[in-house]
Amino acid sequence: MTSLRLATLGAALAITALTGAGAAHAAAPAVPSAVPVPVPVSGPVSSPSPSPSPSPSIPVFSNGYGLTLVPGDTEVHSPTDFTLTVTTKQLSGKHRIRILLPTAYGTDPARRWPVTYFLHGGSGNVNDVEAAPALHSDSMITVVPDGGLKGWYADWLMQNTAEGAANWETFHLTQVVPFIDANLRTRGDRAHRAVVGLSMGGFGSLHYAEARPDLFGHVAALLGGIDFGMWQVPAAVLGTELNVTGAWCASSSSGSGQCTGFGPVVDSDAVFGSPYPVFDADRVWKAVDPAAPDNLAKLAGTGVTLYTGDNDLIDVHTAAASNTVKARLDQLGIPSRYVNYGNGASLAPSCDGGHNYGCWAPAFADYVPRLEAAFAAAR
């Protein structure tokens, strides 16, 4: 069906959308005192010499792997917190990559660091990481790539919508990851690389860990749309494609004060094709479903963590999806850690069990030390 035919259905179903809220306003981590030094670049690059650094206090980056830096469009928030702007043929327009370095990155030039990729939720952006201070760790590099307002961490089936080129998965996995490894002192093996995400990004993190187990040895999905067998998850995707902003605002408990919407309306089949199980029309949905046993089986040897609450209109569904994924992982004999904090009382005073950074931030505060320990144990 076209987006016009599905508009009424999308509006009705998007009340249960599982996408994340826009950037929440929370206190940013304290500015570290260390000043990084320029970093020599390894690996193939598209230019013979590094691009000039916008500031002497942050590493020098070079174009490469299909990414071109936009000169003069780097934001330096602090010496260990900065945002690059890049272009790529895989996506229309300019896109940002926020990078958080450990305090000692510049003072310990012989050391290489694990890397965690944080995938934000729908209608969010790279600045959402400010609301989760635990992700600015002194034990790892955190990279926050743009995921689009409704990119769904996928190479879209339709490339001729109002969004234009939309190969988000290719951008992240074949461009951003090697670009970071080439430009920063990283530990490049899977045991020292993690992918974590919330809401729409929870789908993205689990999907990416399944799609590229060679890249990621650790994955965490927070309140994610991770079971495409539930009608509520395709409904969420349709809601973002059709930009049913009003329904999302009505159901959101984020408290962020923002409702920016999901960008221009696109065809309801734009991302994954038709969701209807008729003549195999839903084949793309089946292929990328994180809860499919064949996909979950790819997580053998990966550290898997799931978090969810169950106390609002959205998270009763993320809890059901997480329950399914946990049960199937158990059936496959794949160890995992599952935290359902219910109404939030067991997690933090700020958490009401809903779909918001009042819960996501303390969930990351619980998870990051465990991830740091896993990185250290993998030496």
Score class of each variant (00 low, 15 high):
216 F>A: 08
106 G>Y: 08
66 G>D: 13
276 Y>D: 07
35 V>C: 08
216 F>H: 09
287 A>R: 12
149 L>P: 01
224 G>A: 07
277 P>A: 11
308 T>R: 13
205 S>F: 11
167 N>P: 02
66 G>H: 09
59 P>M: 10
308 T>W: 03
202 G>H: 10
177 V>F: 09
147 G>N: 15
71 P>A: 14
223 L>P: 00
326 K>G: 14
318 T>L: 00
147 G>K: 02
366 D>L: 08
139 S>T: 13
302 T>I: 14
157 L>P: 04
234 P>V: 02
274 S>L: 11
4 L>E: 13
87 T>E: 11
349 P>F: 13
253 S>E: 09
225 G>W: 11
343 N>C: 01
115 V>K: 09
321 A>K: 00
70 V>D: 04
143 V>A: 09
124 G>F: 10
134 A>T: 02
100 L>Q: 10
224 G>W: 08
86 V>W: 12
218 H>N: 15
111 R>F: 13
315 D>R: 07
280 D>C: 01
80 T>Q: 12
361 A>K: 08
96 R>D: 11
217 G>C: 03
200 M>K: 12
191 A>K: 06
277 P>I: 10
146 D>N: 14
323 N>W: 13
29 P>E: 02
290 P>C: 03
324 T>P: 01
254 S>A: 15
357 Y>A: 05
214 D>L: 07
158 M>G: 04
166 A>P: 08
243 N>H: 07
239 G>D: 01
342 G>S: 10
3 S>F: 10
283 R>V: 12
124 G>N: 09
379 R>W: 04
62 S>N: 14
270 A>C: 01
193 R>D: 04
148 G>N: 06
168 W>K: 04
26 A>T: 04
266 V>H: 01
375 F>M: 08
75 E>L: 15
317 H>W: 15
178 P>Y: 13
320 A>P: 02
293 P>C: 02
356 N>S: 14
344 G>W: 03
294 D>I: 11
251 S>P: 01
242 L>S: 11
306 L>T: 02
19 T>C: 07
33 S>R: 05
321 A>M: 06
98 R>F: 03
147 G>W: 06
76 V>N: 01
297 A>F: 04
47 S>T: 15
